[in-house]
Simulated scan of single mutants.
Amino acid sequence: MSTPTPTTSTAPAPKITIITGGNRGLGRDTALRLAEAGTDLIITYRSHGEEAAAVVGELTALGRTAHALRLDTADVSGFAAFADDVRGLLKEHWDRDDFDFLVNNAGSAVVAPFTEITEAGFDQMVNVHLKGVFFLTQTLVPLLADGGRIINLSTGLARFTIPGMSAYASMKGGVEVLTRYLAKELGARGITANVVAPGPIATDFDGGSVRDNPGTRNALGSQTALGRVGEPEDIGGVIATLLDARTGWINGQRVEASGGTLL
C-alpha cells in the first residue's frame, strides 16, 4: 500500500501598490489600510522624507514590505528615472517585473477667487493634478500587471462648488474624464480605473484649513448629511475596498466619499 504524498500549500504572493503622496494625509491612511489587508507598498513623497520613513516603519510593523521613493509629481522630466527606481525595487525586494495597483493621490491646492488666479497658480494645478497624473500613469502602465487597478483621486468639488477652488476643481474634472478613458483603453489588459472623490477632509491640505480652523470645520460639516467633515480614515478604507479582489467589476466609475455633502 503506497503512502500518499503530502501536499504543501503556497500562500499567494502579496499585491504591490504604488501610492503617490503616501507620507501623510489620505495617502498615509490608504497605505495603512492596504497593509492591514496584506498588501505591500511603495509610497512616494516630494518633501518631508522623515514622514515617509515613519510611514514605512508603520507599514513594516504591520508585517508588510514597504519602501519610499522621492517623486515630484509636477515634474514630468523625472518620471522615467522614477520608473527605473521602481523596477529596481520590484526586482530586488519582490523578484518581480511588475506591480498591481496605482493610486494617484499626491496633490496641493491653490485657493483664490477665479478673478485672482494667476497663470503661475493655474499652471501649478495643471502640472500636479492633470499633466502629472496623465504622464506618470502613462510611464508606469508598462510596469502595471495585467488585471491591475488604477485609482485616481478627485474631489467632491467637481460636483458642487465652493468659491476659491475653481482651478483645483477644474483639474480634477479633467482627471475624472481621463479615468474613463483609462478604463476603456486599458480594459483589454484587464486593468480597471476608478475615481475616488472625497469631500472636505481634515488633513494638512490647503495648510490644514479644514483640520485646524473650527469655523471652517463646523461650516463645512454642517453641509454634510452626517454632520461632520471627513477624516483620513474615512477615505483610506474606500480606496482599499476598491482594490479588494471582490470589487473588480467596478470600472470607469466615480465614487464620491463626502458623507453626503450638499445633497
Rank of each mutant, 00 (worst) to 15 (best):
11 A>D: 08
119 E>Y: 13
198 P>Q: 13
165 M>V: 05
115 T>Q: 06
167 A>K: 00
172 K>L: 06
3 T>V: 13
89 L>W: 09
241 T>I: 14
79 F>H: 12
49 G>Y: 05
160 F>D: 10
211 R>M: 14
232 P>A: 12
144 L>I: 02
93 H>R: 11
165 M>F: 08
175 V>R: 00
107 G>I: 08
226 L>V: 08
149 R>E: 00
194 N>Y: 00
93 H>M: 05
228 R>D: 13
16 I>Q: 03
260 G>T: 15
142 P>H: 15
144 L>K: 04
196 V>I: 15
154 S>K: 02
130 L>M: 06
43 I>L: 07
195 V>T: 07
227 G>L: 06
170 S>M: 14
20 T>W: 02
189 R>C: 07
1 M>G: 14
260 G>Y: 05
240 A>M: 05
262 L>G: 01
163 P>V: 14
157 L>N: 06
159 R>D: 14
70 R>T: 10
220 L>P: 04
16 I>H: 03
75 D>L: 06
22 G>F: 02
108 S>R: 07
82 F>M: 08
163 P>D: 13
122 F>Q: 01
221 G>C: 09
220 L>D: 05
75 D>F: 12
183 A>M: 01
241 T>E: 03
99 F>R: 03
162 I>F: 07
161 T>R: 15
144 L>C: 04
38 G>N: 06
76 V>C: 03
56 V>P: 02
137 T>G: 00
41 L>D: 00
200 P>V: 05
118 T>S: 11
210 V>Y: 15
249 W>K: 03
256 E>T: 13
261 T>M: 13
252 G>V: 04
201 I>R: 03
52 A>T: 09
237 G>P: 12
17 T>H: 12
138 Q>F: 11
137 T>V: 03
253 Q>T: 13
18 I>V: 09
151 I>T: 11
262 L>D: 15
23 N>G: 04
211 R>F: 12
158 A>V: 04
182 L>Q: 07
180 R>E: 12
103 V>Y: 04
139 T>M: 13
64 R>A: 02
199 G>F: 00
167 A>G: 10
191 I>V: 11
230 G>A: 11
149 R>Q: 04
161 T>L: 13
104 N>K: 01
185 E>W: 02
36 E>Q: 04
78 G>Y: 08
258 S>K: 07
120 A>M: 10
101 F>D: 00
252 G>P: 06
85 D>T: 14
119 E>M: 05
183 A>Y: 01
